[in-house]
Simulated assay, not measured.
Amino acid sequence: MEAASVLGYQVNDLARGLLANRSRLVGLIVTKPEVGFRAHLVAALTRLLIKRGNIPFLINAGSSEQELSAAQTALFGYRSEATIVLSGSPPASLVELARLNGQPLVMIGRSEADCDHVRINNHGAALKAAALFVLNGYTRLAIAGSATGTPSLVEREQAFVSEARRLGATVDIAYCGDSDYAGGQQAAAELFGRKSRPQAVFCVNDLIALGLMDAARGRFRLRVPDDVSVVGFDDIPESAWDSYQLTTFRQDPGEMAARAVRQLERRLVNPLAAPSTVQLDPEFIVRSSARLVIAD
């Protein structure tokens, strides 16, 4: 042991795991893991998995065929013992390949057959956003969505538009090229460049909301919330900055990660258990970006 200490020797846990037919690797499949809420969720997952004794293995699925092929080789070449797929746009083909390789799968913010899931109540939150706008007298509404078509964002968009129109409001839709800050500025140019501007905007995530607010104030000289109210989704740390004070729906990355790890543990203990879904309700965080009176 003294010699090992002097030499800086460390046990090769990967080799030990292979001998025991258990790698302890857990693959995290995600597209653009550095962006917005996903970055905080990845951080929370890696902390919990390391604490549990696993080795998190981040797979950036990318957007091209070459990147996808490299992701598949990495994920299955190292024989991870389980896989967690985060919301975003990792293709269904990668999920199906993981399933065929016999890996336990936990899906976060997605909907795939015969898998365990952790979901946020996107539908309920979007309904609440629409109802609050209408109850506060806003009749010209808008939604800043994303052309990426990820499941969570599509669910928020569809529920908001349907409920707002059911309540008698008009709804303009602006699709950002991507669900990021630049996308929010693009949405602002589309929505506020029109003759009839929306009175209130629901953004499908906070990064879009921040870009939209900056463009509204800087390029179009609009006051937030006096001229336009803005509500986002995620509650990333930047949302609480003095420059934004964004009203938003909070997803708790720590809670979502903990639920995903519990789903994983349940599946590893009982591989034949029926698929399980955990749905979490996002907390509505009221700040000053939206002029709203909220009834008790």
Results as ranks from 00 to 15, higher is better:
residue 60 N to H: 15
residue 68 L to N: 14
residue 81 E to K: 06
residue 61 A to H: 11
residue 122 N to S: 04
residue 101 N to K: 08
residue 124 G to F: 11
residue 166 R to P: 01
residue 140 R to D: 03
residue 97 L to Y: 03
residue 119 R to W: 00
residue 67 E to Y: 09
residue 133 F to E: 09
residue 99 R to M: 10
residue 174 A to N: 09
residue 105 L to K: 07
residue 135 L to R: 15
residue 172 D to M: 06
residue 173 I to V: 15
residue 102 G to Q: 12
residue 127 L to Y: 06
residue 172 D to F: 05
residue 153 L to P: 01
residue 84 I to R: 05
residue 68 L to C: 13
residue 145 G to R: 01
residue 107 M to S: 07
residue 136 N to P: 05
residue 108 I to M: 14
residue 50 I to F: 01
residue 71 A to M: 13
residue 168 G to W: 11
residue 140 R to N: 08
residue 169 A to Q: 05
residue 89 S to H: 05
residue 131 A to I: 05
residue 138 Y to I: 04
residue 169 A to H: 03
residue 133 F to M: 11
residue 74 A to V: 05
residue 132 L to A: 06
residue 159 A to S: 13
residue 61 A to D: 15
residue 56 P to M: 13
residue 101 N to L: 04
residue 138 Y to R: 13
residue 125 A to D: 02
residue 145 G to S: 15
residue 166 R to N: 10
residue 98 A to W: 06
residue 72 Q to M: 15
residue 132 L to K: 06
residue 122 N to Q: 11
residue 141 L to K: 07
residue 110 R to L: 09
residue 93 S to E: 15
residue 144 A to L: 09
residue 69 S to N: 14
residue 165 R to A: 01
residue 106 V to M: 02
residue 117 H to P: 04
residue 118 V to N: 01
residue 124 G to W: 07
residue 167 L to Q: 14
residue 178 D to L: 13
residue 52 R to G: 03
residue 115 C to T: 11
residue 53 G to Y: 03
residue 133 F to G: 05
residue 174 A to L: 04
residue 146 S to K: 07
residue 143 I to A: 06
residue 53 G to R: 08
residue 69 S to I: 10
residue 161 V to R: 05
residue 89 S to R: 12
residue 114 D to M: 11
residue 92 A to H: 10
residue 50 I to P: 00
residue 64 S to P: 13
residue 143 I to K: 02
residue 81 E to M: 10
residue 133 F to N: 03
residue 126 A to M: 06
residue 100 L to F: 05
residue 65 E to N: 09
residue 77 G to T: 10
residue 76 F to R: 03
residue 83 T to L: 13
residue 143 I to Q: 03
residue 65 E to A: 14
residue 138 Y to V: 03
residue 157 E to G: 01
